[in-house]
Amino acid sequence: MDSNKYLEDISEIKNMMSRSSRFISLSGLSGIMAGIYALIGAYLAHGIMTDAGRDYFSGRADVTGSDALRIDALYGIAIGVLVAAVVTGIILTIRKSRKSGEKIWDVSSKRLVLNFLIPLLAGGVFCLVLIQYGIVWLVAPATLIFYGLACVNASKYTLGDIRYMGIAFIVLGLINTQFIGYGLYFWALGFGVFHILYGAIMHFKYDKTSS
């Protein structure tokens, strides 16, 4: 019998199963860029804190306590980093999906975004509540943990590697709870270094072969 045909059938089955349930065009490069933006943001934020006469290495918990600290500038940096990372991510992913012939806004990408956003939005609201009650020292660990949960949840709907980054974020966030006051460093390590590592792995594993 022609066993080549059976092999083709098996690979067609695998291909259809993964294409219909997972969005595979997430760009690795966008992870690297998001990490770089995060490191720049952390560097700027660190400068603002130093300007306000804060020695970050002292590990003091009261991040919002000082009048000299420009909270609005810190928010500005945070929003700037987020917007830059998301816009870059969308542009690079559209470019990659054009190459692979995958639709950018189909059932699988919608499912991916939705399942990523559920834990992330819950975490966002939870962090606002922490700020409301003045428990600001738990905001950094909470963002890391919820972001990690969002990645783990999203991993069912895209290439699996994001799962390990999510777990790394959760562990980092939990460790952070024991080092209150160093949130900025943990952020830089997570959103900066972890993203760059993950993006580089994704880039060399998938982007290279598909282009």
Binding site: D9, E12, S20
Partner: peptide
């Protein structure tokens, strides 16, 4: 084959 593959995972 494709139809069944898609409906197995969705």
């Amino acid at each position: 084959l494709g139809i069944m593959s898609i409906l197995m995972v969705n």
